[in-house]
Design a binder for these strands. Structure first.
Lengths: 414, 414
DNA sequence: AGGCTTTTGTTCACGGCTAGAGCATAAACT
DNA sequence: AGTTTATGCTCTAGCCGTGAACAAAAGCCT
């Protein structure tokens, strides 16, 4: 990603590499293993670990198993080290968790809400601020997953809930308060040297000092890339089925966000030949034919507005026909995307896992004829998510650590 | 991209950065400008330039304009420096060129061919070998653009020409001959330390020691990203219209290739609701409705097989109706891709430029209703390519320099 | 139990790298 | 002709990772 050009940046770069390695393996590997993984000299690793422990970023504990030589230690999260606050906001409830380096999750709060921006985000903001005050400077950042396209700056649209350009950071009241008027330490005209200027995040967008707001599908894909079925996969396609369908390409371990921050919208391509108007404003979107809303519509029940999760699950469990129709629509769209993008693996999360388990044959049968001949020889593997419904929350965490585990992020730590 | 971890890699990394900067600016910037661009100390730049000149990679010439202080020099290609051989193979002819660092192109040969693999690639291979022998060790690599999906290893399918798994490196006879039996300097079991193992290229695929074979659209997109309208654009969409339609996403300056090397196939998604079987094996592909073949079909002329370029150009110039239909199909597909991927700019090359000039209103009118409401506020700019029909050739060059301008690539230079 | 082997952590001299200061150079400006 | 300005060159200082030598801490063998 980056590249050090001076000796000083070298050190910073290797600190990041080491912390990232600890985080990515879930704090399971020993110091000597990490030394080999990163091709460091033992002396270098020694200095790095000592420095990071000194800075309250790492804490070594004895490895449990015992081998032949001198016992090694396992670097893990420091007891007073950085925490990522992660939130998954669904159409009907939200969940808030604190995550250590390495990925251990502690759920702090789960609450249902009424589907309005204020009803959902007001209490959530309070909860975040309360926990933030308690945890103090340990909070390295806040990541928020939402079930709709997110534009840069944190503006969110959830068409079927009636959210239009909802300013999530503002409603969460997590914007840093504007600088108080009066004498300032730094003169107003002074440039801020060495400050990273990119606000782009893999799967999320950040207002400076505020939360990283991202699409749930993109975050689920990010988690899948780091700790799930897409780990080590160079090009993967992740599809998240909830009330509707989200899809995003994962390249080199990160989901692609678009120019405006909202790129995880494969669901809004007309891949299944339908002509039904979509709440998004376009027509015949793939997303109209896959997901809980499509299941409910298929059996003639009311749908939309983020209601009916139980009913949809009932349909999923009982209506062979509705499930097959959903799976077929899913398969046809997958074929189109596989043609275009040639992913190595296609992963399904949310209801996608059940759709694939219960009607995988329908899915594959609908996929096959849509593939180019050259794709049929080596079609991508289609697999259920390894993370289930937890993906979006984990992805929100990863987005925070992605920003923290950089030379600039670490610079801000104490 | 990469990241130095030791002091030695640091030097290699900075050598690459400097050469890349020279190449990317087309050898137009002065040494002092480059020093500032790369945030190097003047002393460091001095050492680097001297080293690169010593190695026959760079040659400084006095800057033409004159300013106040001591005159500075412009680093450019060394007269005996590396050359990229670049080839654009179309359905009916090919073009071979030699390219210096900085991007100056010297066309070496242009020849029509009969559309068969042997007829096209046999003479081309001869030409490449002849020029390769003449230029000797200056040849840093060979890049070949082809009008069809390219799988890793250089297997190419051009459905409408009847090419099926054509082994391009073999037909070009550019595979390195197997090592001669007998005593070898390096013992057979000895590992090759520090050797890069990835064969993946942005927009191309390489057999070790052989040419980099890539899709023409992907190469055109690569060129557009480096020297055209997509320069500096984080997420762009490039569409190349020739006999049919190719499309690829450009992220961070490089077109996305898929897992198997062939990712530039947005043309083979069913975006326009057609049901015509496509030679690719799928049905209703977007590519059926855009391009020279679609124009010819529209007016009832024979099409396919890579024939009829002149007729298609005539239709393009005269048939308002056929052009409008093409432009509308193009617009509808663009809307779908913009929804899904949120590009900052959409660029058109090949016939796409003329389609947009002659029927831009039809294109935009067909695009608009397919967009999500949130995309309509800030739709991406749609622009003709800055490189015209030269893109694929230039992209083939860039793919060679992308591989050469790495620490490993430079290591192999003398 | 005691010595040996194996593996890892620690320390330190060494070479390589870039930054930055000071000086030399070469043009334009006055 | 002297001054100003921008750049190139040279050298020292400081930082970094390497790798070797040594210390430490466990298992293994007799």
């Amino acid at each position: 990603m980056n590249g050090a050009t001076t000796s000083g940046e070298l050190r910073a770069h290797n600190r990041v590499r080491l912390l990232r390695a600890v985080h990515d393996c879930g704090a399971t590997r020993t110091r000597s293993q990490l030394t080999r993984d990163l091709r460091l000299a033992r002396g270098t690793a020694s200095v790095l670990v000592a420095g990071l422990a000194e800075d309250g970023l790492l804490h070594e504990e004895p490895a449990s198993g015992s081998a032949r030589g001198r016992p090694t230690q396992i670097p893990g999260p420091h007891p007073r080290g950085p925490l990522a606050l992660a939130v998954d906001v669904r159409e009907d409830a939200w969940e808030l968790a604190a995550c250590e380096l390495g990925g251990r999750v502690t759920v702090l709060d789960v609450r249902p809400h009424d589907g309005t921006p204020e009803g959902a985000l007001g209490p959530l903001g309070e909860a975040i601020r309360a926990h933030g005050a308690r945890l103090g400077p340990r909070v390295a950042g806040v990541g928020v997953a939402l079930a709709g396209p997110v534009r840069h700056g944190g503006l969110v649209d959830i068409a079927h809930l009636g959210w239009r350009s909802v300013d999530v950071p503002a409603l969460l009241a997590l914007q840093p308060s504007p600088p108080a008027p009066g004498p300032s330490r730094t003169p107003p005209g002074a440039p801020t040297p060495g400050r990273a200027e990119s606000g782009a995040q893999a799967g999320g967008t950040r207002t400076p000092g505020g939360p990283i707001v991202g699409n749930d599908t993109a975050f689920a894909a990010l988690a899948e890339a780091r700790r799930g079925r897409l780990r080590g996969v160079r090009v993967g396609l992740h599809l998240h089925v909830d009330f509707d369908l989200g899809g995003v390409l994962v390249v080199g371990g990160r989901p692609l966000d678009g120019a405006g921050g909202s790129g995880a919208e494969f669901g809004h391509m007309p891949l299944t030949g339908g002509d039904r108007p979509c709440p998004c404003g376009a027509t015949g979107c793939w997303s109209m034919d896959v997901g809980a809303n499509a299941l409910l519509r298929r059996v003639g029940l009311a749908y939309g507005g983020g209601r009916g999760r139980e009913q949809a699950e009932h349909v999923l469990a009982t209506s062979e026909e509705a499930v097959a129709a959903n799976a077929e629509a899913l398969g046809r769209g997958i074929a189109a995307l596989v043609n275009a993008l040639d992913p190595e693996v296609v992963t399904l999360s949310g209801h996608g896992v059940e759709l694939y388990e219960r009607a995988g044959d329908h899915l594959l049968a609908a996929c096959e004829p849509g593939l180019m001949a050259i794709r049929r020889d080596h079609p991508p593997e289609i697999a259920g998510s390894a993370l289930g419904w937890r993906g979006s929350l984990l992805g929100a965490m990863e987005s925070v650590f992605d920003e923290f585990l950089t030379p600039e992020g670490l610079d801000r730590w104490r």
